[in-house]
Every structure is written in structure tokens, then in C-alpha cells.
């Protein structure tokens, strides 16, 4: 009896395994979706080849799928496309000499802005001193105030 149950359980296990979608396929599908949404369609430039209805996007999707089925790695597939269409096919361009400005430019500019701001703030603070006015400055202040009063009255 025990053996019968055991065999039955094994069969169930095997059957349920066969019925569920093969996890490998699902993985493949997710990889395919991730990969094609990272690739720019050159015809309608702000769409990925995963979203685009352009003919070229369809062809490139097929090409990506064919290469995946042939066991190519993601890197090999993107290299293949970059070799033909240039870095522009990648929504996230690779870091290299030409693209360094794209990657670091904003940070460099922000840094420069912050430095400038600090510089100006410090300089302004230095300009404001609490030292008492000298004799000459006192006189000038008084005469200016007097002039202003006179103007107000007039």
C-alpha cells in the first residue's frame, strides 16, 4: 500500500511539474522583455524595440529572440546591435571616453555650482564685519542721515 501511495505521489509530482509552465521558458521570456526594453528603436527614437510597432523593431525583436534561442548571452546580443547601430541603440549608453560627458557631466556641473555658491556666500560673510566705524565713517554716516532727513521734510 505504501508503495502504491508513494508511486502515486511521485506521479502527481511529475504531472504537476509537466503542467506548470516550464520555469526556464518564463525566465527566458523575462530576459527577453528586459533586454528588448533596454534597446532603442532607431525609427521612432524614444521607444524601445519592445514597445515599437516599426517594422525594424519587429525585425530586431526577432533577431534578439533568435540569438537568445541560439544560447547567446545578453552582452553578446547588445554587442551585436551596437556594432551595427552604434551606442545610440542602448538607452543606457556604456561608459567610455565618448560617453563620459553624458554620465558625469551633470554631476560635474552640480559640483561646480555648489562650489561657486559656497565661494560667494563665504565672501559675502567676510565682507560684513562687526568692527566699529572709524571717525571719518561716523561723520559721513551722520551727514548722509541728515541729508535724508532734510529730504523727507522737504
Amino acid at each position: 500500500m505504501k508503495t502504491v501511495i508513494a508511486v502515486g505521489l511521485m506521479l502527481c509530482g511529475a504531472l504537476s511539474w509537466a503542467a506548470a509552465p516550464a520555469p526556464q521558458d518564463e525566465q527566458m521570456e523575462a530576459r527577453y522583455r528586459a533586454l528588448t526594453s533596454e534597446l532603442r528603436c532607431l525609427v521612432c527614437q524614444n521607444e524601445s524595440i519592445s514597445d515599437s510597432h516599426a517594422d525594424l523593431a519587429k525585425d530586431l525583436r526577432n533577431q534578439v529572440r533568435a540569438m537568445m534561442e541560439a544560447g547567446k548571452m545578453d552582452k553578446e546580443i547588445t554587442d551585436y546591435l551596437v556594432a551595427r547601430y552604434g551606442d545610440f541603440v542602448l538607452f543606457r549608453p556604456r561608459l567610455k571616453g565618448l560617453t563620459a560627458a553624458l554620465w558625469f557631466g551633470p554631476f560635474v556641473l552640480t559640483g561646480l555650482g555648489v562650489l561657486l555658491l559656497i565661494y560667494y556666500v563665504l565672501r559675502r560673510r567676510k565682507g560684513m564685519s562687526d568692527a566699529p566705524l572709524s571717525g571719518g565713517e561716523q561723520d559721513r554716516l551722520r551727514s548722509v542721515l541728515r541729508g535724508a532727513e532734510g529730504e523727507n521734510k522737504g
Binding site: L42, V43, L56, D59, L60, Y85, G86
Partner: peptide, 13 residues
């Protein structure tokens, strides 16, 4: 016909 050579040449327009 299939546009495969086009892909190799990076044709997009």
C-alpha cells in the same frame, strides 16, 4: 527580402 543584410549594415531609414 527579409532585411537581414539591412540589419548587418545598420539600415534603419
Amino acid at each position: 527580402e527579409q532585411g537581414n543584410v539591412g540589419i548587418d549594415y545598420g539600415v534603419y531609414g
